[in-house]
């Protein structure tokens, strides 16, 4: 019946499906063709060809999709709001002299420290606790579920947790407030009280990212050979000792990957903040300020400068990862 109500969409369904199928078939055909042709060429040609085939597409996409925009951003960060006049470092000076920016930098730092550590720790704990559990699949699926929820959905979900009812005569719709009242405490206005609110927003991110950490780490643990564990048991290593001395070192590589990935995600976070506090009440972070400047204040200069500052935040992470790789190579 409801087909009638949709005037345009169904008219385009067929071409859309055709486009989808053609897109997939063409893509697969190209890949197969490249492999068939490449494997028939001479070894010498192949040695050059392999870079084009394996690295070429990714590099092309990266150059157009990310490197060019990044350079453009760097360029714009030295210009004024409408990208017309060169103003040197003024946007950067602006960023570091704004009184609010200290809070923003502090918040970004808190996010990038707390979220990765909390998510990884909890994810690791669950991976370990469920490693040989009976209904592990169910438990893990429940923890993973937030990963499958969009930010749009997550912000709705958490509204029903953090909602605050100022009128004492009305019923609470926020779960936290209701729990507080049930045990005889006076709930604060959750999203208003700094620095509590930053941590409440962080909790949402941890809630989402723990599933990612758990899945990766759990898989890593499954790959720890049984005989190593059994050997350690024969050596008399018990629970905690076995965890720290055997499991952790065995999966350390995965832990680093997880920590790194979540740190990058937290560095870029802005949806949660934008939907839940709008960056008010001292909860803003750099990515949110960047969005605000670029798309609300329409100042591409300051927005770009903030993006470049954000980019600097990844440097420590790179250094950390390079060191880990070096260490690993020394061991080998």
């Amino acid at each position: 019946m409801w087909i009638v109500t949709a005037r345009s969409p169904f008219a385009t369904v067929l071409p859309n499906i055709v486009l989808l199928l053609v897109g997939l078939v063409v893509f697969v055909a190209i890949i197969v063709l490249i492999f068939v042709l490449s494997e028939r060429t001479k070894e010498k040609t192949q040695n050059r060809l392999k870079y084009f085939v394996f690295l070429g597409p990714a590099l092309l996409l990266l150059i157009i999709g990310l490197i060019y925009p990044a350079i453009r951003t760097l360029y714009l960060s030295f210009f004024d709001a409408r990208s017309e006049n060169f103003i040197g470092l003024q946007n950067y000076i602006w960023a570091f002299t704004q009184p609010e920016i200290l809070i923003v930098l502090r918040n970004t730092l808190i996010w990038t420290i707390v979220v990765p550590i909390a998510s990884t720790t909890i994810g690791l704990a669950i991976a370990y606790l469920t490693d040989r559990m009976k209904y592990a699949g169910l438990v893990k699926s429940l923890i993973f579920m937030p990963m499958a929820i969009s930010f749009v959905g997550a912000s709705i979900i958490w509204k029903f947790v953090y909602a605050y009812q100022p009128d004492p005569n009305k019923e609470d719709i926020g779960l936290l407030s209701a729990i507080f009242k049930a045990i005889g405490l006076t709930p604060p206005n959750w999203l208003l009280e700094a620095p509590l609110n930053t941590f409440l927003l962080i909790a949402v991110m941890v809630w989402i990212q723990t599933g990612f950490a758990m899945v990766v780490l759990s898989a890593a643990m499954k790959a720890v050979p049984d005989d190593i564990i059994e050997a350690s048991m024969l050596d008399g290593a018990k629970g905690w000792a076995r965890f720290t001395r055997i499991t952790i070192p065995m999966i350390w590589g995965s832990v680093i990957v997880v920590l790194t990935t979540i740190t990058v995600t937290s560095l870029k976070v802005f949806d949660i903040i934008r939907t839940m506090t709008g960056g008010n009440f001292q909860t803003s972070v750099i990515a949110n300020e960047m969005y605000q400047q670029s798309f609300r204040a329409l100042n591409y200069g300051t927005g770009s400068a903030l993006a470049m500052i954000l980019f600097l935040g990844v440097l420590p992470l790179i250094i950390f990862n390079v060191r880990q790789v070096r260490k690993e190579r020394e061991v080998h």
């Binding site: 008010n280 009440f281 001292q282 100042n299």
Partner: peptide
Amino acid sequence: AAVGAGSFWKEMTAWVAE
């Protein structure tokens, strides 16, 4: 926009909230 869709909103919010 920097004021009308930015600081004016933010500061009025801080005015009551903080």
